[in-house]
C-alpha cells in the first residue's frame, strides 16, 4: 500500500494539482478542555462561614442546617450579559424550592455592589460578600483564583447535615447552568429515601 502510494506520488511529481495532491487521513478528535485546580470534594464537611448579606446583617451556613444548601461562588457582579448565571438561578428558583433548598451566592464584591446587582437582576436569594478578609471563605472551599483575585465559578450542594454532596468547578468563561445542581438535589432525595426505607 505504501509502495503504491509512493509510486503514485512519483508519477504526479511536478504535476501537483489541488485535486491530485496526496491526502493525509484526518482524524477528528475530541477537543479537550482541562480544569486546573480542585474544589472541596463530596463527602467533606462544608466549612461554616458568616458573611454579610446586607450592610448590617450576616448569614451563616449553619443557619440552614436541616435543609439542603446550594453555594454558588462566582467571579463578579455586573458581567455585561443579560443572561448571567445568577439571573438564571433566579428563574430556576421554583425548581430548587421543590427540594426545599436554599441558594447562597458568594463573590468577593462588597455588599453595596451586591445590593445594587441583586436589585437590578431581581435576584430572589441572598448574595453574600466574601469581602473582608478577601476570599477567605472561597479559599476554604477551594474556589478562589489567586492570580485574578476573584472567586472561581464553583458550585456546591450541601445536605441537611452540612456535608458536601456534590461540587463542580466550571472552566474559565463557562457558565455552568443549573442541571448539575438539580441532579445533585435529586440524588440527595434518593439517598434519603433509601436510608429511611
Amino acid at each position: 500500500m505504501q509502495l503504491n502510494k509512493r509510486r503514485r506520488l512519483r508519477e504526479l511529481k511536478g504535476r501537483h494539482t489541488v485535486a491530485n495532491r496526496p491526502r493525509r487521513r484526518q482524524f477528528k478528535t475530541r477537543k479537550v478542555i482541562k480544569i486546573e485546580g480542585s474544589v472541596l470534594a463530596a463527602g467533606k464537611k462544608a466549612p461554616n462561614f458568616s458573611l454579610n448579606s446586607t450592610p448590617d446583617q450576616k448569614v451563616s451556613l449553619n443557619d440552614f442546617r436541616g435543609q439542603p444548601v446550594i453555594l454558588a461562588f462566582y467571579p463578579a457582579d455586573w458581567s455585561p450579559v443579560c443572561t448571567d448565571q445568577l439571573s438564571l438561578y433566579a428563574e430556576v428558583m421554583p425548581e430548587f424550592k421543590k427540594f426545599n433548598a436554599e441558594l447562597l451566592a458568594i463573590s468577593v464584591d462588597n455588599i453595596w455592589s451586591h445590593l445594587a446587582f441583586a436589585k437590578d437582576r431581581k435576584l430572589n436569594f441572598p448574595v453574600l460578600a466574601d469581602f473582608e478578609p478577601k476570599g477567605v471563605v472561597s479559599r476554604k472551599y477551594g474556589a478562589y483564583e489567586e492570580k485574578i483575585g476573584e472567586s472561581a465559578r464553583a458550585l456546591f450542594v450541601i445536605d441537611a447535615t452540612g456535608v458536601v454532596r456534590w461540587s463542580h468547578l466550571s472552566p474559565d468563561g463557562v457558565n455552568p447552568g443549573a442541571d448539575g445542581i438539580l441532579s445533585a438535589l435529586e440524588n440527595l432525595n434518593k439517598a434519603r429515601a433509601t436510608e429511611q426505607s
Binding site: 450579559v81 443572561t83 448565571q85 439571573s87 438564571l88 425548581e95 457558565n175 455552568p176 447552568g177 438539580l182
Partner: peptide, 13 residues
C-alpha cells in the same frame, strides 16, 4: 421547553 433546557444545562440565552 424551559425545564428541558434547565436539565440540559442551558445557562442563559
Amino acid at each position: 421547553d424551559f425545564n428541558g433546557g434547565v436539565r440540559s444545562g442551558v445557562n442563559g440565552t
